[in-house]
Amino acid sequence: MPTTLSDEEAQFVDDIGHILEDHGRPRIAGRILGWLLVCEPPHQSFDELVEALGVSKGSVSSMTRLLVDGGLVERVALPGDRRTHFRMAPDAWSRVLSWTTDRVRRMHGAAERGLALVQERSPEADPWRLREMRDLYGIAARQLPEVAEAFENARRC
């Protein structure tokens, strides 16, 4: 049965695509993710993704591979259906929190190293840019594990 997205669905899918694109990811990967967030049933075959999103098979192939490799989407086999289907991975958002926490900790460490470098090179310099970076990422690095724990607790309820 052909899938035509409603105007609201298409807008949501495009919004997720733009958000991912703003974070350096391919827009089509975000559009696939967006559709997998709102589609019914929650799993879609390769051809259903191509049709619903109006994109090439090559785009769907490479972007589903990217999303699967990233752990946000998983392949599923349905009984009696030889096609591969895709759906959101059950732990996708926990993975996002984990990656975000790792990136934040790395940025905090980079800021610390940058501060040491500037202070060693020019003790009289005012490295306010690095101090603010360190402070922001330090706060986030301390609080993100609490966010992750709260999210995991909410998932269990």
Rank of each mutant, 00 (worst) to 15 (best):
M1W: 01
D7R: 09
E8N: 06
A10G: 01
Q11H: 11
F12M: 03
F12W: 07
F12V: 01
F12D: 00
V13D: 01
V13I: 12
G17R: 05
H18M: 13
E21P: 00
E21V: 01
D22K: 13
H23S: 04
G24P: 02
R25V: 03
G30T: 04
G30L: 03
G30R: 06
R31T: 03
I32M: 07
G34I: 02
W35H: 15
L36N: 05
L36F: 12
H43T: 12
H43Q: 12
S45D: 06
S45H: 05
D47Y: 10
L49S: 08
V50R: 15
E51T: 13
A52T: 05
A52M: 05
A52N: 03
G54E: 07
S56D: 10
K57L: 08
G58T: 15
V60I: 15
S61A: 11
S62L: 14
M63N: 15
R65L: 11
L66Y: 12
L66P: 01
D69C: 02
D69P: 01
G70Y: 06
G71A: 10
G71L: 10
R75Y: 00
P79K: 11
D81H: 04
R82C: 02
T84L: 00
T84D: 01
H85W: 07
H85M: 03
R87P: 04
A89R: 12
A89W: 01
P90M: 01
W93D: 07
S94R: 13
S94V: 11
V96M: 04
L97R: 06
L97V: 09
L97D: 05
S98H: 06
S98C: 03
W99C: 13
W99P: 00
T101D: 14
T101P: 00
D102W: 06
V104P: 02
R106T: 14
R106K: 15
M107G: 00
M107A: 15
G109S: 13
A111C: 00
G114I: 10
A116T: 07
A116R: 14
L117E: 15
L117I: 07
Q119F: 08
R121N: 04
R121T: 15
R121C: 06
R121K: 09
S122P: 00
A125K: 04
A125R: 02
A125M: 05
A125F: 06
D126Y: 05
D126H: 13
P127A: 14
P127D: 14
P127F: 08
P127E: 11
R129M: 10
R129G: 14
L130I: 11
L130E: 13
E132Y: 12
E132V: 12
M133S: 15
D135T: 13
D135K: 14
L136F: 15
L136V: 09
L136I: 11
Y137C: 03
Y137G: 00
G138M: 04
I139P: 01
Q143A: 05
P145M: 07
A148M: 12
F151L: 10
A154H: 12
A154D: 10
A154L: 15
R155A: 11
